[in-house]
């Protein structure tokens, strides 16, 4: 099996405060869906930020999709993110001055693929996610669930090696939350590697094949979800 994430002896401190994370070692295989759970302040978001290359570890190494990212500069990290990572945020983080299709194709355009190819890929994703009728709508006109689907489409447009989801149902109503859950499950069944950060144990159980539970920056539990 190919390792998509390999974290070795990572710690993270903010300023001079106590450790927010680690020391921590973790590996995620290709096609695996890993749920990261834990109480507030346990280090879930810190771990996600380190894997996404949004933050750098104080110690240790982070390798994602075969590339050690903790030593990359900002420019290289940006290139890494656009090519290897797709991200879904709790509060969607769509650009509200771009319409749905423009939001989705934006990361594709960054990689330099043609407009036609980007549009075709966006159309495919919108079809798959059931948001084609909103292609020209702006995010402010959409419901929370629809916005999160747009965010998922944007995250998948470059066929990322790794999909990162930070509390993807946290801002959604129950029905929308279930839709997003089903979507993630489908993606996992189709072989997408996923790192899912959530408070929601039910979501973790349903969508992930494996879960780790963080407490005070350490892995307190690492198990297959069937075993939970």
């Amino acid at each position: 099996m190919t390792q998509v994430i390999h974290i070795e002896g990572v710690t993270k401190r903010y300023d001079s405060a106590a450790r927010a994370l680690g020391p921590l070692t973790l590996t995620v295989e290709q096609g695996e869906a890993l749920a990261v759970t834990g109480p507030s302040g346990s280090g879930k978001s810190t771990l996600l930020n380190l894997v996404a290359g949004l933050d750098k570890p104080t110690e240790g190494s982070v390798t994602v999709a075969g590339q050690r990212i903790d030593q990359l500069n900002e420019h290289a990290l940006a290139r890494f993110r656009r090519e290897k990572i797709g991200m879904i945020f709790q509060f969607f983080n769509l650009l509200d001055d771009l319409n749905v299709v423009e939001n989705i194709v934006l990361p594709a355009q960054l990689t330099g693929i043609s407009r036609r190819q980007a549009a075709a890929r966006a159309g495919e994703l919108m079809e798959m996610l059931g948001i084609s009728k909103h292609a020209r709508a702006y995010p402010s006109r959409l419901s929370g669930g629809e916005r999160q689907r747009v965010a998922v489409a944007r995250a998948l447009v470059n066929r990322p090696a790794l999909l990162l989801a930070d509390e993807p149902t946290g801002a959604l109503d129950t029905a929308s939350g279930h839709n997003v859950r089903d979507l993630l499950l489908d993606l996992h069944h189709n072989g997408q590697t996923i790192l899912l950060v959530t408070h929601d144990l039910e979501l973790a159980e349903t969508c992930a094949s494996r879960a780790i539970h963080l407490v005070d920056g350490h892995i307190a539990l690492d198990a297959r979800t069937e075993a939970l």
Binding site: E74, A78, R81, I85, M87, L95, L110, T111
Partner: peptide, 15 residues
């Protein structure tokens, strides 16, 4: 915040 989103989806600082 918008700048943060752009960077998160892969915009380089120069872009």
């Amino acid at each position: 915040r918008r700048i943060g989103i752009l960077k998160a989806i892969g915009f380089t600082p120069g872009e």
